[in-house]
């Protein structure tokens, strides 16, 4: 009996991510959920700009590449063109969703667009070489904050789930991580719920995945997973921030 194998919704192509990068795990979770819900043939993904810019190479479903940050706007159009048949998700990093695409994100949430957003937060700009992101932690050393992020000069990190939970629009907001086997299982549950909400016509569902960037954090993959527990999670607490149907509101 096969206990675990690559999901069908991921193709055979070897991913370009750095060794130990958790993007690979998150891609797989999205693909596993597509398999389990049987929606591979009618799913359309929207890829961002960032490390996961080439996500369209790895999924077997149809994919669109959006301009930087505009994935929720593109997804809105695709979903509204055929709301009955299309399942639409965006896969975005923190530079894409929380920086240049903040307006699109907030307004898609406010309109309660019936789309699923997978938000990968690794607190740094990975693709461009490790510059400070809107989500970089106070004191975090990056290429553009070599003495650590100075909040007096650069301001404070943006907590996307907390911020969006203030809106009446979004249906479901949860923050998860993928730094242990247990956490990966939880993350999959959250992603599945986000897709199921869309199938049920409930509306905007965003799952923020606290992720690692061993290369730009300057850590080994193992140290990076520990760093998530030590530094990221105290600042970005995990949990459900909004689940309107269940009446949950943090």
């Amino acid at each position: 009996m096969v206990v675990f194998d690559k999901p069908h919704s991921l193709n055979e192509m070897s991913m370009h991510y750095c060794p130990g990068c958790t993007h690979g795990i998150i891609h797989r979770l999205v693909a596993e959920v597509m398999d389990e819900l049987g929606i591979e043939g009618r799913t359309i993904g929207v890829a961002p700009v960032g490390c996961s810019v080439m996500a369209y190479n790895y999924f077997n479903c149809d994919m669109i590449e959006a301009a930087h940050g505009r994935a929720p706007a593109v997804a809105t159009g695709v979903k509204r063109a055929d709301p009955e048949n299309h399942v639409v998700f965006t896969y975005q990093g923190d530079g894409d969703l929380a920086s240049i695409g903040m307006a699109e994100t907030v307004h898609a949430a406010a309109r309660n667009e019936n789309i699923t957003v997978i938000f990968v937060n690794n607190a740094i700009y990975g693709m461009t070489g490790g510059q400070m992101a809107p989500t970089s932690l106070p004191g975090q050393v990056t290429q553009t904050s070599p003495y650590g992020r100075d909040v007096n000069h650069c301001g404070y990190p943006i907590k996307v789930c907390e911020m969006l939970s203030q809106l009446d629009g979004p249906e479901y907001l949860e923050r998860v991580t993928v730094n242990s086997v247990k956490a990966v299982r939880n993350a999959k549950k959250a992603i599945k719920k986000a897709f199921q909400n869309q199938l049920d016509g409930k509306g905007f569902s965003l799952v923020e995945v606290v992720s690692s960037c061993p290369t730009n954090w300057g850590l080994t993959p193992q140290q990076a997973l520990k760093w998530i527990d030590e530094k990221m999670i105290p600042y970005y607490p995990l949990g459900v921030y909004k689940d309107r149907s269940a009446g949950e509101d943090k």
Partner: peptide
Amino acid sequence: IGCASCAIMCPDCVIKVER
């Protein structure tokens, strides 16, 4: 023991687990 913990943490789907 075929728990698949390794496969769940693998970012590149390298491991197939059968039991």
